Simulated assay, not measured.
Amino acid sequence: MTLFDDNNEDFLFTTASEHNFVYDYDEESSGLCSRTEVRQFAQYFIPPFYMIVFLSGFVGNILVVVLFAFYKRMRNMTDVYLLNLAIADLLFLCTLPFWALDVKLGWIFGNFLCKTIKGFYKINFLSCILLLTCISIDRYIAIVKAIKARASKSKILLHSKLISLIVWVTAVLLSLPDFCYSSKDEALKSCLTVYPGNILKAAGFAMQATVGFFVPFVVMVFCYSMITWKLLQAKSFQKHRAIKMIGTVVSVFVISQLPYNSIMIVQAIDAANITITDCKTLKNVDFATQITQSIAFLHSCLNPFLYAFLGVKFRQDLLKIMKDIGCVSQRQLRRVMRPQQGSCKRSSAHSETDTTGTLSL
């Protein structure tokens, strides 16, 4: 958790000579750089925001898991990735109430839970991003390399399960420092990650920015650019809708993740070279970290809608759930699903490769 790990203990900045506290002097006095307003902002902003993200994201992702468990069979790689994405989002969201309470009350859960929650936070955050990357690659293969995709359809589910396993193992390995170096600071009453050296700290920032944004961003831009080019050459009447969907997916990813990961790069450079020493600048970095990190967390709320519920099949399954719990009658269900089923029959050859699951074709 960047607000409490990365050596920003109690919002005090870390210098090269100190691993736990930074004794940066305010330009107006010879004392410590006061971060009172930063702490107050966090206490008012973070707890309600995190709880909103937790509740909204929990409902959406739980619906995806229920759909797969009771109404939908996993037919392709994207289905497998979507289920794993929903599970990763749920586990990630479950860490947010702990951080909200940490800001308000201090860390009251002990050292073991400090390490566990820190590790789970990082594992699931990285897993979400890596699974989004896998979805973009799968859609590239399904649409741009459609013939090859159909030829290897018998191995698709096996490959997707193996790739999902690799994603989880990779996320666990990259999260080991959080398990190893996190502990409860009794004096500050916070759960902190204190790296044994600024080089390792800078490497942690750089790794998160690289694996958590820049590599996935490059892969997504390439895959969706090729998909868009392929769709522009097709005669499908739904291609413009699919292209808009691609633009939305990429835009949301960039808007939610780029600001936060840019701050990660700034912090990595500063951890290695101690480039930020001005008190006002330090406070601005603290504010920027809190705000951009919160925006990045919104992606876990939006994933079910961007990657699942915009698909025709998922919407039909969701309507079936609503019918089963009494929210929709059988007559209303037939009336709503009839035009959707008609549009499915008219869809292009791309829907044969199950592109509807992600691009809502």
Results as ranks from 00 to 15, higher is better:
residue 63 L to R: 04
residue 217 F to Q: 06
residue 90 L to C: 12
residue 240 H to I: 05
residue 225 S to E: 02
residue 101 L to Q: 11
residue 44 Y to H: 13
residue 284 N to M: 15
residue 209 A to M: 05
residue 217 F to Y: 07
residue 17 S to G: 09
residue 103 V to H: 05
residue 301 C to I: 11
residue 325 I to L: 12
residue 323 K to Y: 08
residue 229 W to Q: 04
residue 44 Y to E: 08
residue 278 D to N: 14
residue 159 H to Y: 12
residue 246 I to G: 02
residue 137 I to F: 14
residue 61 N to T: 11
residue 123 I to P: 11
residue 353 T to A: 12
residue 14 T to D: 02
residue 347 S to L: 10
residue 344 C to L: 10
residue 262 S to I: 12
residue 136 S to C: 12
residue 16 A to W: 11
residue 269 I to E: 09
residue 219 V to H: 02
residue 350 H to L: 10
residue 337 M to Q: 14
residue 225 S to D: 02
residue 45 F to K: 01
residue 46 I to L: 08
residue 85 L to Y: 07
residue 229 W to D: 03
residue 209 A to C: 07
residue 98 F to D: 00
residue 110 G to L: 04
residue 158 L to A: 13
residue 305 F to W: 15
residue 60 G to M: 04
residue 251 S to D: 07
residue 178 D to N: 13
residue 173 L to Q: 05
residue 91 L to G: 05
residue 232 L to N: 02
residue 103 V to G: 01
residue 200 L to Q: 07
residue 154 S to M: 12
residue 268 A to R: 06
residue 5 D to M: 03
residue 114 C to D: 09
residue 73 R to N: 15
residue 32 L to R: 08
residue 36 T to F: 10
residue 101 L to H: 05
residue 82 L to E: 09
residue 353 T to L: 10
residue 146 A to L: 06
residue 248 T to C: 12
residue 209 A to R: 01
residue 235 K to D: 01
residue 249 V to P: 00
residue 282 L to W: 07
residue 204 G to C: 05
residue 241 R to M: 02
residue 161 K to P: 07
residue 223 C to L: 02
residue 107 W to M: 06
residue 277 T to H: 05
residue 329 S to A: 04
residue 306 L to V: 12
residue 257 Q to N: 10
residue 118 K to N: 13
residue 198 N to Q: 03
residue 43 Q to M: 12
residue 358 T to S: 11
residue 162 L to D: 03
residue 316 Q to W: 13
residue 83 L to S: 09
residue 232 L to W: 00
